[in-house]
Structure formats: structure tokens, C-alpha cells
Write a protein that binds this DNA or RNA. Sequence first.
DNA 1: ACAAATCCCACCGAATCAGTAAGTATTGAG
DNA 2: CTCAATACTTACTGATTCGGTGGGATTTGT
Lengths: 145, 145
Amino acid sequence: MKISTKGRYALRMLLDLAEHKNDGYIALKDIAARQNISKKYLEQIIPILNRSDILSANRGYQGGYRLAKSPEHYTVGQILRLTEGSLAPVACLEHDPVECDRADDCITLPVWKGLHKAITDYLDGITLQDILDSQAERYANDYII
Amino acid sequence: MKISTKGRYALRMLLDLAEHKNDGYIALKDIAARQNISKKYLEQIIPILNRSDILSANRGYQGGYRLAKSPEHYTVGQILRLTEGSLAPVACLEHDPVECDRADDCITLPVWKGLHKAITDYLDGITLQDILDSQAERYANDYII
DNA sequence: ACAAATCCCACCGAATCAGTAAGTATTGAG
DNA sequence: CTCAATACTTACTGATTCGGTGGGATTTGT
């Protein structure tokens, strides 16, 4: 019941892009350095995100990535669904559901459905902008103290 | 981000014991047959639950297991914590937290804390009795229709 | 032309998952 | 007292996933 590093890194990568959304195209090298993540591994995660048009990429010299939309248009749920494949806590709730002949009278299925809803309701309610805002707020508090 | 079969089987096993709580000691063989789960595998799951005094076991002829308390005293969260080790969606939130030197200014940590809370609030709010009740209700409806 | 970047594909060790196998210890019934 | 049924224990195993690394090919601004 863990979020994979792939998902956590993807979120941090997009947050990094959100923080630098006015700096043009950001090279993977810079994200890797700032976030202290292997650039090679990020190279493997990027195409997962890139497939669904949430990023805009530029190859070659001075190339890199930037967000296709502004940070409030990305929810954490949306990002994690890409990297994790699905946020369903059991296989029988996935989009192409794994067949389960017990589903009709499965006594535990409603529990998993409810859990799935609790998870997605929470994660789809948080945008990248929300996370940036809460960070800004924290820094402000630090400054006051 | 999946609940393991170990956790799902543990829940079904305890629900089976709850359904037969007035039938004395229940042999693993019977649970395995009713739930269509390998008895050998259940044998491996049982000690995880047995360690924490939620079961009462009897060895030998006519032996088996029964719940130590009544079904409303078991929450799904409590059971899954035993089999999954922890319900934390990231390692840095576990009980013996995995060290993370970035924790102090980790921008994503509040997200994972909130997710952890959403998950545990939901799962700790459901008891075995709740599940049995919802099943009974469904059967009642079927009967009416 | 060259260097910096994205892209692409294969590989790899370690851990986890989902079980199986084989045997020991304990108990009630006959 | 013996036997069969049961819980308990330990070890093993094949498949898959996790968390990467390595080696290049391709594109692009200077």
C-alpha cells in the first residue's frame, strides 16, 4: 500500500516545473540537481507524463520541459494515476477490471470501493498550485517568527 | 498502491469467523473451502493475526480458531495494519520512520500526511460488524424485490 | 561542426508477492 | 492407547515488480 518512487518523483518533478514556470524550458539536468534525483531515472519517468500532453518538451540545445497548463490545472490524483497506472486499492476496481467471479456477492467489495473513493476524493482535490501555496504560507510564518 | 492478497484474505478470513462466531472453533480447512483460498496460504497468514491476541486458537482434534472479541471490536484498519505492516502511503510516515533528511522542508510531505489520514480515517471507521450488517441489508433488499 | 539536450531500448540486482512443501506438536474421540 | 485431525513451524520457489544504470540515436541552437 505504498506510492512508488516513480509517483513521488513525478510529483516533485512537476512541482519543480511549476515553481519555475516562468523560466522557459527547464532541462532535466537542473531538476535532477535541485531535487537530488538521478537524471537517468527521471528520463524514464518523463515519457509517462509526456504521453498525456501535460508537458511541453523541446529537444536540442537549450531544450527542456515546461508545464503545458498552469499549476492549478494539475491534480495530484491525475499525476499519480499516470505513474501508478491506477489508484484502485484492489485489482477488481481497475478501469479494465480484472475478472472476479465473486464480485456479485463479494462482501468486501464495498469496503474497497469506499477506500478508493476516499483516496481519489482526497488526491483529486489537491492541485500543484495548492501545494505551492501551502509552502509559501509556511515560509511566511517562518519569516514572522 | 495496492492492498496485498495477504490483507484481503485476512479480512475475509476474519469475516468468515465473524459469521460463524457461534459455531465454536472453526477449522482453517472450512474457511479455506468456503472462501476458496488455499489452506496452505491461510496457514501463513494466521500467525500474523494470532500474534496480537485478536484470535483464540485450539489445537488438535476438533480444534480451530474463533474471534477473541465480538465483531464490532475489529476495524478494517486494525486488521490491515497487521498484514500490511503499515497503512502509510510513503515510508517516511511509518511508525519507525525511514530517515529522510529532506523531511523538514519537504514540500510533498503534507500531501502524504493528508492521504494517510484520509485512508486511516476511512478504514478505522469500519468494523467487521458493519460489513456483516451491510451484507444482511443487501440480502433483505434482494428478498423484497 | 559541435555540444547540449531529449528520446529510446535494453539490461540488472534486489526485494516482494503469492504461494508450496514437508514436517512437528497437540489434542479429542474411539 | 492409538489414531486422525488439527494447529504450528520452517524452508523453499518461481514470477513479478522496484529502483535504478548503460549505451546509444536523434534533434537543435550557437
